[in-house]
């Protein structure tokens, strides 16, 4: 595809969230990602799109999967990739987010991928640097590349997203994955439901245009996609839920509950999974699980995002 069309189809310097993206822009990213699926399946996975560019992975929160996915994406496109895990380094103490941002910016990276435990932290950082910034998850706010890879996975398996019923189940309250997916899948024409106990539903969630369900039986019924969210163990100690046992009983996805969905319904999870809590091993490892494909699509989507944003860089 010609660089010119890339610029006109996606005219943003950063990818901070799904919010603010049009359906056309989302579809454009998904189409680009399709190309990179093929490339990642070749023996020769190297492209030179980001040759000479520097990509910094700046993770204020521990993450193995997302960081590895961005690292591979950057390397397959020929970028020099540096990983900074601030969560485990001394930077966390004393130095502010903005100090870190300004310091890294002085090293003249072309792109910074940021994960941070505070909502809005990536936006704040983006205001202080001259390179492109990609949000790899900020607090409970957004995780745009996760939503894009989920959309791509659904589209490849169902052939479409428009008109599908997607049930997002579990800890919606704390989930940036849920928020980005609600925005992306709604923009692409899916009917989105959220399914959770009321203590894990954020106030006003229905105003985001989703159907709200408190029981899996109604929430999953006739769904095309059942998307489970990870539940943090510390939230099941009585603060939001009485116990792991009770949550697993009413909201854990097993074969019985999955039978309420459409016969060809598929199961997703952003990982890492809590086996036997929000999802049973039988379902997670079963024939209707897309969990491993999601991981594969993650690399492709991130390659696409890096590629598209690099075209909007100076000299891009």
């Amino acid at each position: 595809m010609a660089p010119d069309s890339a610029i006109s189809a996606f005219n943003h310097r950063h990818l901070l969230g799904i919010e603010g993206l049009s359906r056309q822009e989302i579809e454009f990213l998904l189409d680009r990602a399709e190309e990179f699926v093929g490339i990642s399946r070749q023996v020769q996975k190297h492209k030179a799109d980001l040759e000479g560019r520097t990509l910094i992975n700046l993770f204020f929160e521990n993450s193995t999967r997302t960081q590895a996915s961005f690292e591979l994406a950057g390397k397959r496109l020929g970028a020099d990739v540096m990983n900074m895990s601030v969560a485990t380094s001394s930077v966390r103490k004393g130095e502010t987010l903005i100090d870190t941002a300004v310091t890294l910016n002085s090293m003249r990276p072309d792109m910074i991928v940021v994960r941070h435990h505070d909502s809005g932290a990536v936006h704040l950082l983006a205001k202080k640097v001259s390179c492109s910034v990609i949000n790899a998850g900020d607090g409970s706010h957004e995780h745009p590349t996760q939503a894009l890879l989920d959309a791509l996975t659904i589209r490849r398996n169902k052939g479409r997203i428009e008109g599908l019923t997607v049930a997002i189940c579990g800890d919606v309250l704390h989930s940036r994955v849920a928020r980005s997916n609600i925005l992306a899948l709604s923009a692409l024409g899916a009917r989105v439901r959220v399914v959770a106990p009321s203590t894990l539903l954020p106030p006003g969630i229905e105003q985001l245009g989703v159907e709200v369900h408190r029981s899996m039986e109604t929430g999953i019924r006739d769904a095309d996609i059942v998307m489970m969210l990870r539940v943090q163990r510390e939230r099941m100690d009585g603060a939001f839920l009485p116990s792991v046992k009770e949550f697993a009983r009413y909201y854990g996805l097993d074969d019985e509950k999955l039978s309420w969905a459409k016969p060809d319904a598929l199961v997703m999870h952003p990982g890492p999974i809590n086996r036997g809590v929000e999802i049973s091993s039988a379902v997670a490892d079963g024939p209707r699980s897309l969990i491993n494909e999601q991981v594969e699509m993650g690399v492709a989507v991130r390659m696409a995002v890096l590629n598209v944003l690099s075209r909007n860089l100076p000299n891009g």
Binding site: H141, P202, G204
Partner: peptide, 15 residues
């Protein structure tokens, strides 16, 4: 403030 806006921003609300 607790509500739709806080939910969109991913911020904890005060009712």
């Amino acid at each position: 403030n607790e509500g739709e806006l806080a939910t969109r921003l991913g911020l904890a609300g005060v009712p």
